[in-house]
Write a protein that binds this DNA or RNA. Structure first.
Length: 188
DNA sequence: GCGACAG
DNA sequence: ATCTTGTCGC
């Protein structure tokens, strides 16, 4: 369990969560050294970001591991919007694996919208660190049993269950201030 | 005042 | 993110 104090501010997610994500990666290396993460899937964006450096970039640099941003909602930046054109592009995604590029007004391709499995709502994939967008999309698609890629989904499910047990189990004795949950992401 | 708003 | 009501598909 970790204690998060920094508030969530759109565009500054990394400043709230990246310290705990780095901690989690280091804990894996120390407590389970035989596990060697080759890539991290992050619940958030990479280059698809106001300043082109979202939490997936932060975590990648700090851990020196390949990193992929996987967002469940479009971060409206560089002219990208959830307008009618965007909704039309989403409708054009017919099958799992279908994609369309997220090209900003600047002309840069900031990421890809990906239809994973049978979900009509796409994922927004972007480069975090040491991986190209095409590889990122293929890798995410390859580990989607449901809409959310399984590593992130399992991290989410298990962290929530941990929190639930934490609250329903007998109270501790010399407790301190209120804590918050540790969140998801992770490897393979 | 109104729209935007990763998690 | 969280909460709530209702619907749809397996």
């Amino acid at each position: 369990m970790v204690a998060v104090s920094a508030p969530y501010v759109a565009g500054f997610l990394a400043f709230r969560e990246v310290p705990f994500l780095v901690e989690a990666v280091q804990r894996v290396q120390q407590e389970e050294p035989r596990l060697k993460p080759q890539v991290l899937l992050v619940d958030g964006n990479g280059l698809l970001h106001h300043r082109g450096f979202g939490v997936a970039c932060h975590l990648g640099v700090l851990t020196d591991l390949p990193c992929i941003g996987v967002a469940k909602n479009l971060l409206q930046v560089d002219g990208l919007a959830r307008d009618e054109l965007h909704r039309e592009q989403i409708r054009s995604l017919q099958r799992g694996g279908d994609t369309f590029p997220l090209t900003g007004t600047s002309g840069n391709v900031l990421g890809m919208a990906l239809r994973s499995c049978n979900s009509s709502k796409p994922l927004y994939i972007s480069v975090g660190h040491r991986v190209c967008l095409e590889t990122a999309v293929r890798l995410v698609q390859s580990c989607c049993r449901y809409r959310i890629p399984e590593p992130i989904r399992q991290a989410d499910i298990r962290s929530r269950e941990y929190i639930r047990k934490q609250m329903c189990s007998p109270v501790k004795v010399p407790s301190s201030g209120p804590e918050r949950k540790e969140k998801a992401e992770l490897d393979d």
